[in-house]
């Protein structure tokens, strides 16, 4: 075989493999959308779930997912921001920084089920917090932190050093320079990172089944008192999320219409994550344009 023949065959092989992958992708997306969309209805989105009879909705699960996401971001964003500032602005180039980076890498490589089990052990059991939104949010924080730290650090790093010099040359403290100059300049990147991480948090289930729990008690959406046990805002109640719900109805096998519920719920999950992805891009671009004066 001449080199040219080999070349042609190799290219064909590669194209063939790519074609298969593309087919798989189409099948996946098609399957989720085609089998899921027919089940999405106003009724599906606004009625509570039912375990033993058909026709249940996902209202509480959807709300739980969003509420958990918000709580997780409230806990993880300040921590991640502070850590990212440390790494990008204060850390020297030495063994200590190396060790810290290794620790963060280890955290990011832990399987989410292990992180979830740790949350279960420490918060649900040792701290007697029980299966609760708060336990879940803390577990998700662990899972979310390394990614968030990395993306924020990247955005801070992308701000040129000349901006830092400009700040401190005016007699500003480093902290003031970081807060007033570097952070605003890094904001588009930071926001994009947060929204992308939100997508991951939204779809996560393994870290939640033993922290936020697998039950969705009936919620009272008119009770705004977070300390009341029936209030939808109560962070100490167990909360099954959308992703956990998909898992549960499929593994327990007691819900008669498990397949259609899962199909609908999967489609909702994917749509929300898609929205997050597009949103991240749109907001990033918009802010970038605004800051550079449209140039």
């Amino acid at each position: 075989m001449t080199p040219n023949q080999t070349d042609r065959i190799a290219t064909q092989v590669i194209n063939f493999l790519v074609l298969i992958v593309v087919l798989i992708l189409f099948f996946l997306l098609g399957d989720i959308i085609l089998s899921g969309f027919p089940h999405i209805s106003w009724h599906f989105l606004t009625s509570p779930s039912s375990s033993f009879s058909a026709g249940g909705g996902i209202r509480d699960q959807l709300f739980n997912s969003l509420y958990l996401l918000v709580l997780t971001l409230i806990i993880s964003f300040p921590l991640a921001l502070g850590s990212a500032i440390y790494l990008s602005e204060y850390a020297g180039n030495n063994w200590r920084t190396g060790l810290i980076r290794t620790a963060i890498e280890v955290l990011s490589s832990l399987p989410s089920v292990v992180v979830g089990l740790f949350g279960y052990l420490l918060f649900v059991i040792e701290f007697h917090m029980g299966f609760s939104i708060l336990s879940g949010a803390i577990a998700l924080t662990f899972f979310n932190l390394p990614l968030l730290v990395r993306s924020i650090e990247g955005s801070l790093h992308a701000v040129p050093d000349s901006q830092r010099e400009a700040g401190i040359s005016l007699g500003l403290s480093n902290w003031r320079t970081i807060r007033g100059i570097i952070l605003p300049a890094a904001l588009p990147g930071i926001l994009t990172g947060i929204i992308l991480s939100a997508g991951r948090v939204f779809g996560e289930a393994a870290a939640l089944i033993y922290t936020a729990g697998q039950s969705a008690p009936i919620l009272n959406y008119s009770n705004w008192n977070p300390t009341d046990s029936s209030s939808f805002l109560n962070p100490m109640r167990p909360a099954e999320t959308l992703a956990v719900h998909i898992w549960k109805v499929n593994t327990e096998g007691v819900t008669p219409d498990a397949v259609s519920i899962s199909a609908g719920a999967s489609a909702v999950l994917i749509i929300v994550i898609l929205l997050f992805n597009f949103g991240a891009r749109a907001i990033g671009n918009h802010m970038y344009k605004k800051m550079t004066g449209g140039k």
Binding site: Q163, A166, S169, A185, T292
Partner: peptide, 8 residues
């Protein structure tokens, strides 16, 4: 500085 570095 050498390169103009106005804040954003």
């Amino acid at each position: 500085f050498q390169k103009p570095n106005p804040f954003a």
